[in-house]
Structures are given as structure tokens and as C-alpha cells.
Simulated assay, not measured.
Amino acid sequence: MSRMLQVLACGAVVFPGLFFAFRKILPCVFKHWSDADVVLVSERLVSSIHAAMATTAGAVVVSSCCGNVINDRHWLATYFVIWYGVPYMTYDIFAMYLSHYYRFHVKGHEDYKQHSLRTINSFVRKEFLLVLHHIALLTILLPVTLFFRKDQGDFFIGCLFLTELSTPFVSLGKILIQLSLQDSWLHKVNGGMVLLTFFMCRIALFPFMYWMYGRHYGIPLYSVPFHLPLSANLGNSCILAPQVYWFVLLCRKGYRLYQRSRSPASSPTADTAAITDSSKDD
């Protein structure tokens, strides 16, 4: 137990520590950046680091448990959630708030001269879906992982880790915009990767998990929802619904960006509303 608490404490230090380290380093490199720019890029860099860790853990768990998707075990399925998932989700709510605060603070908004309950309330209202998504993961995924799955389903927990694969591409898109590279070929290629990885790992992944479950029990895909407890279907729906919503926003912005790029009247400043502005990953 003491070792688990030590590792949990380590996770609680890693992400805030990286965030504040980036906040100190970036202004020395990009001297013209505002506080809002520094906080945004720092948040995105930490998100990418966590996403790389989660994706790696997910790949290890999935590859280790694909033989028997119900009963095969891997220690990372539980311990990654405890060690790094919970600390990251908690930290990220705080980092998102700081990004929100400084975005309006540098613009001189009267309510954002200092932190207050009003700025917190404004953040929660503006980013309600993202905050709800983070809280749901903390209050649903954590108890399910620790207490309610009866040491089964590590494969599916690993699949959920893989949803983070799109996060580095989303973050890179915002960083490229910050570097005024929104018209570069790299930004366009990255936009395509955002759409591809988001669809594959945040939407198509769910029918894939249902299919793997059905294959294990020898039942067709359409019968799987009726074979699962209602709570499992509701939990998956709660996770999937915002992903579909964000993917639709991504597609709309991608289409608008494509239309502007084909229009002779399009200007570089118009293209700054890039495809990756639609989504913030967990």
C-alpha cells in the first residue's frame, strides 16, 4: 500500500511539474509570447506526454490480453489508472482553467484581473462538456477499474487507453497555429491525422470492442448490447457521445478550412480557425 501511495504521489507531481517547467522554459525561447500563449502550449505539451504514456500502456495491455478478452490480465490495466490516469485528469482540469483564465486576462477583460469564483464559474459554463468528461472518467472509470469488474476485462481497459492516440495530433495542430505555421503542409497533414486517429480510436473503437466481446462468446455484434449489463451500455454511451459530438465539430471545421483553401479570397488570418480548434483531449 505504501508503494502504491508513493507512485500515486509521483503521478500527482509529474504532470503539474512538467506544466510549470514548460511555463518557465517557453518564455525564454519565445520571448514575444503572452502568458496565454505559454499556458496553452504548456498544457498541450503535457497532454501529449500523457497521451503517449496512455497509448503505450494501452498497446501493451491490448496485445497481452487479446487471447482471452475477458479473463486475461495485465497489471497496467489497473495501475496506470491509479498512478497516472487519476492525477492527470485532476491536473488537467486545473490546467484547462488556467488556459481559460489567461486567454481572457491578456485581453483585458474586467472580470479576469484576478482569479475569483466568477472566473471559475465562467470556465465551467464555457467548458462544461470537457469538465463533465473529466469528472465522469474520475467518477466512473476509476471505480469500474478498481472495484466493479471482478478482475475481468483488462483488454477493454487497454482499449480505452488507446483513445488518447489522437491527442498529440490535436495538440500539435494548436502548437503549429501558435508558431504561425497554420498554412504549412505539416498543418494540413496533421489535420488529416487528427480526423483519422480521432475516428479510429474514439469512435470506431467502441463497435470494435463490442465485436471482440461477441467473438469471445460466439454471438453476433448486434446481440452484444443485449448480452451486456445495462450499466455497461450506459457507461460506453456516456463516453462515446461527446466523442461523436467533437468529431462532428472537427469535420465541420475541416470542411470550412478546405473551402477557404480553395477560395481565391481566402486569407492566412482566416485559416487560423484550424481543424484542431474543435477538440480538447483527455
Rank of each mutant, 00 (worst) to 15 (best):
R202P: 00
I157K: 08
Q178R: 07
D183W: 04
P143H: 13
P168N: 04
A136C: 15
Q152I: 08
M200G: 01
T197I: 02
L138W: 05
I140R: 13
K188M: 13
R202M: 00
K188Q: 14
F206D: 03
G192L: 03
K150E: 14
G191V: 00
F198N: 06
T145I: 10
L172S: 01
L196Q: 07
S180N: 08
C201N: 02
S171K: 00
F198C: 03
L195D: 03
F206K: 04
Q182P: 08
F208R: 13
P207T: 08
I177V: 10
Y213P: 03
T145M: 13
L162A: 07
L186E: 09
T197M: 06
M209L: 06
W185D: 14
Q152D: 14
T197Q: 12
P168L: 01
P143K: 15
I203G: 00
F199E: 00
S184P: 04
G192I: 00
S180Y: 13
F148R: 12
L160F: 11
L181G: 07
P168C: 02
L138D: 12
T139Y: 15
L138P: 05
Q182R: 09
G173D: 08
G173M: 04
P207G: 10
L141C: 13
L160Q: 11
D154W: 14
K174D: 04
F156Q: 14
L176I: 08
M193H: 03
I157W: 05
P207V: 10
G191D: 12
I140F: 14
N190C: 07
K174N: 02
L172E: 00
L181N: 07
L195I: 03
V144Q: 15
L196V: 02
Y213S: 06
L141I: 08
Q182G: 11
W211L: 11
I175T: 02
I157P: 01
M212I: 02
P168S: 02
V194Y: 01
P207M: 12
T167F: 06
M212Y: 09
P168E: 09
K174R: 01
F155C: 06
L195Q: 06
E164V: 11
A204Q: 04
L141P: 03
G173C: 06
G158D: 07
G158C: 04
T139R: 15
L160H: 12
R202N: 00
R202K: 01
S180P: 07
Q178M: 10
S180I: 09
Q178K: 05
S171T: 05
D151A: 10
L162M: 12
F147T: 08
W211C: 08
F147A: 13
V144M: 15
L138E: 13
S171A: 04
M209P: 00
S184H: 05
D151L: 10
L160R: 14
P168Q: 04
P143R: 15
V144P: 14
F199W: 00
L176R: 11
E164D: 12
G173K: 05
V194T: 01
Q182W: 10
V189H: 05
Q178D: 09
Q182N: 09
